[in-house]
Amino acid sequence: MKKRRRPVHLHVMLSEAERDQIQDRMDEAGVRNMSAYVRKMALNGYVLHVDLSPVRELVSLQRRCSNNLNQVAVTANTYGGIYPDDIRRLQQDYADLWGPLSELLKQISEIVAL
């Protein structure tokens, strides 16, 4: 039988309301393992929950920029030239990407400063 990494058992009695409150906080933090959550809270006193929805939007913008760049590259290689509108569209897509990215980095730096 292999040794457990954490061999000490800790038993805590809770009311149903307290358990529900812990479960709600776990859901807010995106944690599924109650043992890991309780251990983290007991040792560190807090769990940092990061809303990644702005990152998802940035990934979507980045994909769109990459697709547009690939289409322009195919056009340039096939026909030997690029239309000025294609270049302007790429520039606009990258501008759309850098604005939210700068804002996200600013928010992250504020969180880290806490």
Results as ranks from 00 to 15, higher is better:
residue 75 T to G: 03
residue 38 V to L: 09
residue 7 P to A: 00
residue 47 V to G: 02
residue 9 H to L: 07
residue 67 N to Q: 11
residue 10 L to T: 09
residue 48 L to W: 03
residue 63 R to A: 14
residue 94 Y to F: 14
residue 79 Y to M: 11
residue 96 D to K: 06
residue 89 R to M: 08
residue 80 G to P: 10
residue 84 P to H: 12
residue 32 R to I: 03
residue 16 E to R: 10
residue 111 I to R: 01
residue 92 Q to N: 10
residue 109 S to D: 10
residue 67 N to A: 11
residue 15 S to K: 01
residue 10 L to K: 12
residue 90 L to R: 14
residue 77 N to M: 09
residue 61 L to Y: 02
residue 19 R to V: 00
residue 39 R to V: 08
residue 16 E to D: 13
residue 60 S to N: 12
residue 76 A to S: 10
residue 53 S to H: 10
residue 26 M to V: 00
residue 69 L to H: 05
residue 35 S to H: 06
residue 98 W to L: 15
residue 88 R to V: 04
residue 79 Y to T: 12
residue 21 Q to I: 05
residue 108 I to Y: 04
residue 33 N to C: 10
residue 65 C to P: 03
residue 109 S to R: 07
residue 32 R to E: 09
residue 102 S to Y: 11
residue 12 V to Q: 01
residue 61 L to R: 06
residue 50 V to L: 12
residue 31 V to R: 04
residue 34 M to C: 03
residue 97 L to W: 07
residue 113 A to D: 04
residue 86 D to H: 07
residue 29 A to G: 03
residue 58 L to E: 07
residue 78 T to Q: 08
residue 5 R to I: 10
residue 101 L to A: 15
residue 108 I to P: 02
residue 66 S to K: 08
residue 50 V to R: 06
residue 45 G to E: 04
residue 38 V to A: 10
residue 84 P to S: 14
residue 92 Q to D: 12
residue 41 M to C: 01
residue 71 Q to T: 02
residue 40 K to T: 13
residue 59 V to Y: 09
residue 77 N to E: 07
residue 40 K to A: 07
residue 65 C to F: 08
residue 111 I to W: 03
residue 78 T to W: 07
residue 40 K to W: 08
residue 12 V to G: 03
residue 113 A to V: 01
residue 35 S to G: 09
residue 65 C to L: 15
residue 2 K to I: 13
residue 31 V to G: 01
residue 99 G to W: 02
residue 108 I to S: 08
residue 70 N to E: 09
residue 5 R to M: 14
residue 19 R to Y: 12
residue 56 R to Q: 07
residue 98 W to Y: 12
residue 88 R to H: 05
residue 39 R to A: 06
residue 99 G to D: 15
residue 18 E to V: 01
residue 66 S to V: 15
residue 15 S to G: 02
residue 10 L to C: 08
residue 83 Y to W: 15
residue 91 Q to G: 04
residue 89 R to I: 07
residue 45 G to A: 01
residue 111 I to Q: 03
residue 46 Y to H: 09
residue 110 E to D: 13
residue 35 S to A: 04
residue 27 D to N: 08
residue 108 I to R: 01
residue 22 I to E: 00
residue 56 R to N: 09
residue 18 E to T: 05
residue 88 R to P: 02
residue 43 L to T: 05
residue 26 M to S: 00
residue 88 R to W: 02
residue 21 Q to N: 08
residue 66 S to H: 14
residue 80 G to M: 12
residue 74 V to N: 00
residue 87 I to W: 10
residue 98 W to I: 15
residue 112 V to W: 04
residue 89 R to N: 08
residue 44 N to C: 12
residue 37 Y to E: 00
residue 31 V to S: 05
residue 92 Q to L: 11
residue 1 M to T: 06
residue 99 G to L: 13
residue 7 P to R: 00
residue 16 E to L: 06
residue 33 N to T: 01
residue 19 R to Q: 07
residue 16 E to Y: 01
residue 29 A to E: 02
residue 80 G to Y: 11
residue 26 M to Q: 00
residue 98 W to N: 15
residue 4 R to H: 08
residue 33 N to K: 15
residue 73 A to D: 06
residue 58 L to Y: 02
residue 4 R to Y: 02
residue 65 C to T: 07
residue 104 L to S: 14
residue 64 R to G: 05
residue 75 T to S: 14
